[in-house]
């Protein structure tokens, strides 16, 4: 089943070194993480009917993706894949919130449609920023930075370990499903009994693999922790980057730049 492998190769390609060559990769990972969280908090703090005031926030993912040398099309595609849940829950807003909230060229726009639009924009912005975070600094630096920010060692070790073995296990599962497909009628979903023995076998192999890995690690002096990548000391540039980001977020949050621009356009037009 090449779908599995394709999907998991995507995991590794997203944090491939090629995509970490941008300017953003030179910023301390901790600053990037903090800026990402601040961005998400600011986006979700907007009023539930905010549509126009949210749009200027889109400048940050676009600029950061460019600075990080990350293809915008890939981010955009992944953002689209992530929308269904938000759309599913938000789709009910126009039904349950029919009161008019805005007048547009003589037509009343209900609060429900506004909040649905707001939900979709929020979803796109927050998802894009999270993807840009991992694509710009990669899993190893992300874990090292989380470690420095005080995340439990068990978790960061676990994340690194898992990240390393996802491809191995997916490859194994891909070969197993291919072998089955070659011997039977290919179908997307398996009968439960086949499913149980397929995954059961994979689980057994996984456990044995874990034991071999543990032996190999012990013989190389493993003491319960993976060595974390060293992190560069915090520099002035990182402070400037973080301050600029936070300042710009606050500016967009407190000033309604889109409406301001609209008034300017109306003014110019008249």
């Amino acid at each position: 089943m090449s779908g599995i492998e394709a999907l998991l190769r995507e995991v590794h390609s997203l944090d491939a070194p090629a995509s970490q060559s941008g300017w953003l990769a030179g910023i301390d990972s901790r600053a990037t993480i903090l800026a990402t969280f601040a961005f998400i908090l600011v986006v979700v703090s907007f009023n539930r009917y905010a549509v126009a005031p949210l749009l200027p926030m889109a400048i940050f993912p676009v600029v950061l993706a460019r600075l990080g040398n990350i293809p915008l099309t890939r981010i955009g595609f992944k953002v689209l894949l992530a929308m269904p849940f938000a759309l599913m829950v938000g789709a009910f807003n126009p039904v349950f919130d029919p009161l008019p909230h805005m007048e547009l060229m003589g037509h009343a726009v209900s609060g429900g449609w506004l909040s649905l639009a707001s939900i979709l924009i929020r979803a796109a912005l927050t998802v894009a920023m999270a993807l840009i975070l991992v694509a710009s600094i990669g899993m190893h630096r992300l874990c090292a930075a989380l470690d420095h920010l005080g995340a439990p060692r068990v978790l960061t070790t676990q994340l690194l370990f898992m990240h390393r073995y996802i491809l191995v296990l997916a490859g194994e599962l891909g070969r197993m499903t291919l072998a089955r497909e070659l011997r039977s009628q290919p179908s997307k979903a398996l009968p439960l009994s086949v499913y149980g023995s397929l995954l059961g076998h994979l689980l057994l192999r996984t456990l044995e693999r874990a034991q071999r890995i543990h032996q190999a690690m012990l013989s190389r002096g493993f003491d319960g922790h993976l060595p974390m990548r060293q992190i560069q000391p915090w520099q002035w540039g990182d402070t400037v980057f973080l301050t600029l980001c936070l300042g710009a977020f606050l500016l967009v949050r407190t000033m309604d730049l889109a409406t301001l621009l609209g008034r300017l356009m109306l003014d110019v037009a008249s």
Binding site: M1, G3, I4, L7, L8, T157, Q158, L160, F161, M162, R164, Y165, I166, V168, L169, A170, E172, L173, T177, S187, K188, A189, L190, P191, L192, V194, Y195, L198, L199, L202, L203, T206, L207, R209, A210, Q211, I213, H214, M217, L218, F222, G224
Partner: peptide, 26 residues
């Protein structure tokens, strides 16, 4: 209550869950 052998086991099982979620049964 550290049991060293849990570290690789947890990591590899996490990857297993990940891979297993890609396979559907009818």
């Amino acid at each position: 209550d550290f049991r060293d052998h849990l570290v690789p086991l947890m990591g590899v099982l996490g990857a297993f869950i990940f891979a297993a979620q890609m396979i559907n049964f009818s």
